[in-house]
């Protein structure tokens, strides 16, 4: 597979990642090289194999529903770039008419 500069632009929008024009071109070229290696996966006969998402082999790890102390709100907010009272503050989310 070849990734074009336009592909990189589209993907980076999906990933909410602002990329400079020159980075988009460079990534397109580098990722095409990486995909040439990755494309070899298609040659492997994987008929009947499970998708291995984790090597732990655990399923449905349950625990008792017990209330335990958690991070103090002040501590949780201590790294916030911007805050108001007990809230994280962000620029506007909704479109304005």
């Amino acid at each position: 597979m070849i990734i074009t500069k336009e592909d990189v632009g589209r993907i980076s929008t999906l990933a909410r990642l602002d990329l400079r024009e020159d980075d988009q071109s460079l990534f397109a070229q580098q990722l095409s090289g990486i995909l040439r290696i990755i494309d070899a996966l298609a040659e492997v006969d994987t008929e009947g194999m499970n998708q291995m998402v984790s090597p732990a082999g655990l399923t449905n790890v349950f625990r008792e529903d017990i209330v335990l102390p958690s991070v103090d709100p002040e501590e949780a907010l201590s790294n916030a770039p911007d805050r108001e009272g007990a809230f994280f503050k962000v620029p506007r989310i909704m479109e304005v008419d």
Binding site: S12, L14, A15, L17, D18, L19, D23, L31, V90, R92
Partner: peptide
């Protein structure tokens, strides 16, 4: 707005290898 804040924060705060892998992973 928040959407451009997120994209720009990531664009300015992250280095090239991290960005490359985010793009590959999203792809």
């Amino acid at each position: 707005d928040s959407a451009s804040m997120m994209a720009m924060s990531r664009g300015e705060g992250l280095g090239p290898e991290v960005k490359r892998r985010i793009v590959l992973g999203t792809y």
